[in-house]
């Protein structure tokens, strides 16, 4: 069942990627090759952007699936661990200090921010903390990073820096190059690999913490794998594209009914579906006519995600989930 789903998602991606390359402010007609600068648009703008959408979407989808398995809750989102706000805080500081002018330093700052949030999370949650304490620690880090970001914005040295920060935080794949693809891909793939390795333990956790331990799960190892896996995927994503929410929440939820519902069988299909969703959403952002530029991907997904989340909550209240 799972293999068939993976094949279907792969086939959808194989169809969607070339189509996505054609859409944008300049539509490229494959049967009329005389479009001006088509090669440049494809190779330098659209292809890296599509590649980034695939990588980031895969990371967000996989981390959402693992996160929901870890917290045993379909409403969980990778953002809950406070790693995304940590990475965003790092990026904001790079704007604040002016280091963002150097193209390599922004993602480096963001990765350091993600790494610090991961270390803080591991430190607070401790060795015997349990999942509830772990989640609360994540929420605390999240609000701390949020407060520090607001502080940095309110104290920003120039109005230009402030507008740069605010725009960057909205999350987008516009104007990204192969460099960003090169930064995000290894971290994201490593993160997905770590989350796949956590799959068996997440399956056992379906039965609760005590039963999982009785099945041989080492809770400390699982916690370390989760911090590393979520940190790498989410940290890399924020580092190159800003905060893109709700993918990690929506995708596993949509994919779950198509699998046998074990967390481990959800990770790879969620990665593929996340890639597909982000690719489609980014295309939509490119082609929507909007005065003054294009719709920001982060905003578009929040607009999609919030009603989705609300619907999920209402269904849960009725006991249908």
């Amino acid at each position: 069942m799972n293999r068939r789903l993976i094949l279907i998602l792969l086939a959808a991606l194989i169809v969607a990627v070339p189509l996505s390359l054609l859409a944008g402010r300049v539509w490229i007609d494959p049967f009329a090759p005389e479009t001006r600068n088509a090669a440049v648009i494809l190779m330098q703008l659209r292809l890296p952007r599509a590649a980034l959408a695939l990588v980031l979407g895969a990371g967000l989808g996989a981390s959402g699936a693992a996160m929901q398995g870890f917290l045993r809750n379909p409403l969980a989102d990778p953002g809950l661990f406070g790693i995304a706000p940590g990475a965003a805080l790092g990026a904001v500081l790079s704007f604040w200090t002016g280091y963002a002018a150097s193209v390599w330093l922004l993602p480096v700052f963001a990765l350091i921010g993600a790494g610090s949030a991961m270390a803080l999370l591991a430190l607070i949650a401790g060795r015997e903390g349990g999942i509830a304490l772990f989640t609360l620690a994540g929420l605390m880090i999240s609000s701390l990073a949020g407060a520090l970001m607001s502080l940095a914005i309110s104290l920003s040295p120039t109005p230009f820096a402030m507008s740069e920060i605010v725009t960057w935080l909205m999350g987008t794949l516009a104007d990204r190059s192969w460099r960003e693809v090169g930064i995000a891909t290894p971290f994201t793939l490593a993160g997905i690999g770590v989350l796949i390795a956590a799959g068996r333990s997440l399956d056992a956790l379906t039965l609760g913490e005590a039963a999982a331990r009785s099945l041989g799960v080492d809770p400390q190892r699982l916690q370390a794998l989760m911090i590393a896996g979520i940190g790498l995927t989410v940290g890399a994503g924020v580092a190159v594209a800003g905060i893109i929410g709700f993918v990690g929440l929506m995708v596993p939820h949509l994919v779950r009914p198509l699998t046998d519902r074990r967390p481990s069988s959800l990770i790879v299909p969620s990665a593929l579906a996340g890639a597909l969703l982000l690719l489609a959403a980014d295309c939509l952002c490119r082609v929507l006519p909007l005065s003054g530029g294009e719709l920001r991907l982060g905003i578009a997904l929040s607009l999609l995600g919030a009603p989705f989340f609300l619907n999920l909550l209402l269904r849960m209240r009725k006991g249908l989930v």
């Binding site: 039965l207 799960v217 074990r262």
Partner: peptide, 25 residues
């Protein structure tokens, strides 16, 4: 084999898949 008090099942697995979790070790 350990059966905890008030055992929970977080996801709506089928009987066969739930039983297969016993093979995890």
């Amino acid at each position: 084999g350990y059966l905890p008090q008030a055992p929970e099942v977080a996801w709506d697995l089928s009987v066969e898949v739930l039983v297969s979790l016993g093979r995890l070790p």
